[in-house]
């Protein structure tokens, strides 16, 4: 397994977490725990999951990814995704995946803008 600090990059305090191409549903829960610990330790206000390395997913892997995204979001962190390729989007739609749990954007720049806006609004509401 990869060290967590090699998978996550901090830009202006916000995290970009690149999902490795060879990840599987068995290793994701462990990665998820480490990721959550990293977020708390570094006080990360928002995180983008970059899925551009993934070229195929099955139902089990997608469920594990969603669980990881939801776990991260439950820490009160703004979360979004980018990099889902056409093939994966098509497969997920055919599998009946419900995308309401995730907020996706076409580019990393848009993800960063979204994270900054959401965490600003979150701070303002506190």
């Amino acid at each position: 397994m990869y060290p967590i600090h090699e998978m996550i990059k901090l830009v202006d305090g916000y995290g970009i977490f690149s999902i490795p191409a060879d990840v599987d549903d068995a290793t994701l829960p462990e990665i998820s725990s480490e990721l959550c610990a990293f977020i708390v330790q570094h006080n990360v206000p928002g995180l983008t999951f970059d899925l551009s390395n993934l070229h195929s997913v099955d139902r089990a892997l997608w469920s594990a990814l969603i669980r990881m995204i939801l776990a991260t979001g439950s820490l009160g962190v703004a979360v979004n995704t980018t990099g889902i390729c056409a093939g994966i989007a098509s497969t997920l739609a055919l599998l009946g995946s419900d995308p309401t749990n995730i907020q996706a954007f076409g580019t990393l720049d848009r993800c960063m803008t979204d994270l900054k806006n959401r965490s600003k609004n979150h701070r303002a509401s506190l």
Partner: peptide, 12 residues
């Protein structure tokens, strides 16, 4: 519905 779900996964 399927098409809109797929595009939404790509941020569109």
């Amino acid at each position: 519905v399927k098409i809109t779900k797929a595009t939404s996964l790509m941020g569109c």
